[in-house]
Design a protein around this nucleic acid. Structure first.
Lengths: 224, 224
DNA sequence: GCCTAAAATGACCACCTGGTCATTATTGGG
DNA sequence: CCCAATAATGACCAGGTGGTCATTTTAGGC
């Protein structure tokens, strides 16, 4: 029992106000520090009703958590399908842009994700971390494997290491979009769409080409 | 007034036990959820003493925070000096290994860092985020610039973007070392020294060479 | 051994938390 | 219009919080 029929039978505006308030509260304060008193006050309902609907604080969080997981799963599937015909780097570019778009649309959900990452007293944290793992495993891994098979990627790459690196860079980009000072001097934080587009493009190019001086480029130097 | 002389005059074993307990508590529970009652009990002192020493919970945290900042600053300076004669990629490799070594030596400090990253109700969070920014600006940026000047890096790179990427990958590697499931299938989590060494080496090679198939390789394909 | 200044103590305070439940209000079928 | 089922309510509870402070203990110069 996570959520009662009573809640499902509520009129949509009320139901959604309660959910929005709860999501906002969890996003702002994390699980433990989120206050059901505040939620009740902000939703304009009695605290007792929250318990009637969701049983416990954890029940309410579970409901929101599952909702968010479904949202994300759906989004990933859509992006994967929509980009199926693109080459590897274009796909990464599209995926990252889709990530930014998702955050623009659901900023609080991403905030909850960030809070859960390192806060240990979240319920379902293990389940949550495993789902992140699944994102890498089910989304990026096949993408990389296809990229290698089609010659977009060097054939000698270690798939797991590539997935790890992509995950690192992409997630950090999204974090930098949401949290000030995480972007170094790259000005990613709350960047307008046009700038995001350029930054993502540059970032993907960097991943493609690497940092090292090209052997082709140094060959000239070796000739002098 | 952050810390009183009374605390500084304590006999070292007692002083350090109190500090170690506090660091442990903040690392485990974050700032808000950390309990002074627990700290007092675990340190074997009265709660009142904590307030005599540090004034407030925030004063105690400030003391630990400044201590940690000093530790990190010192460490960065040392690594920077020790690797001054290495080439760029070797320096990144050494820096990352030094990061892992630091975490092995001060796991709780890194845990506090992780908790502060996205938890908004930490005191000094802004100051803290600015200090992270400084890490990029003062540590990585000159390193990249020198690397470009000396021809280790491609000369056409955007310095800020490179710093951003390095920061992303390095920080995520350290996170994956500390938090399960953040490593995809790369098996970074609590990896033994030998494996860490190999993974760091591979990661740096990947950064150097990039993901893309070499233009020399695709040229053949274009001929067919 | 005494006396005073400094330090340690823990009972106590107001406040907030998640959760309960007897009471009240609402609803809809007959 | 009535009545029973369902839903909403908020006073109340035990427990935990950061913080206070009158009281006791300790330390060290004389």
């Amino acid at each position: 029992m996570a959520v009662t029929q009573t809640f499902q039978r509520l009129k949509p505006p009320k139901r959604e106000k309660i959910l929005a308030t709860a999501i906002h509260e969890f996003a702002r304060h994390g699980f433990r520090q989120a206050s059901l008193n505040r939620m009740a006050r902000m939703s304009g309902i009695a605290k007792g009703s929250l318990f009637q609907y969701f049983g416990t604080k954890e029940g309410l969080f579970r409901f929101i958590f599952d909702h968010a997981v479904e949202l994300i799963r759906h989004n990933l599937r859509r992006v994967k399908a929509e980009t199926a015909d693109q080459d590897f780097f274009e796909r990464i570019r599209s995926s990252l842009l889709a990530g930014v778009a998702f955050i623009r649309q659901h900023p609080h959900i991403y905030q909850i994700y960030l809070k859960m990452l390192f806060q240990e007293d979240f319920p379902f944290r293990e389940e949550f971390l495993e789902k992140i793992h699944l994102f890498s495993a089910e989304y990026l891994t096949p993408l990389v494997e296809k990229g290698m098979a089609e010659g977009d990627l060097r054939p000698d790459l270690d798939v797991d290491l590539v997935v790890f690196t992509l995950d690192a860079v992409m997630d950090r980009f999204l974090q930098a979009y949401c949290v000030p000072f995480l972007d170094g001097n790259a000005a990613v934080f709350q960047a307008p769409p046009q700038r995001v587009e350029k930054q993502v493009g540059d970032l993907v190019e960097l991943l493609r080409s690497g940092l090292g001086a090209r052997s082709g480029g140094t060959r000239l130097a070796m000739n002098e």
